[in-house]
Amino acid sequence: MDKFCINENYTLYEAIESIDENKSRMVVVTNDEGIVIGVLSQGDIIRALISGHTIYNRVNELLHPNFIYMHEHDIKKAFDIFKKKGITLLPIVDDSFCLKSIITMKDIYRYIENE
């Protein structure tokens, strides 16, 4: 799960590295308490760089706090959300927004195959 997740104090550079490694086009961002506070996509990073930010800016200046999440791991529901929203990662969080797991495109493909 580590490669899908970065701390809010990481730089854009580190976020890009993480996205490069996870091949999911986005990362989940947590704070020091391990609480999910947003997500950051490849597109967000490109937009940030175009508008004058540098790769050394911190991700907490740029992330979207209005991310899509689920409290329960429900792959069928997740499939609907992926389809409708075009997202590539879906964090599953507990009641206090600590990260429990992440649903990726891979999980979705597996679900489609089995259906």
């Binding site: 308490e33 609480i35 506070i37 706090p65 209005n66 409290h71 009641d95 206090s96 927004f97």
Partner: peptide
């Protein structure tokens, strides 16, 4: 961020 519980947007 640190105190919310449940369905927050």
């Amino acid at each position: 961020f640190n105190n919310r519980r449940g369905d927050y947007y």
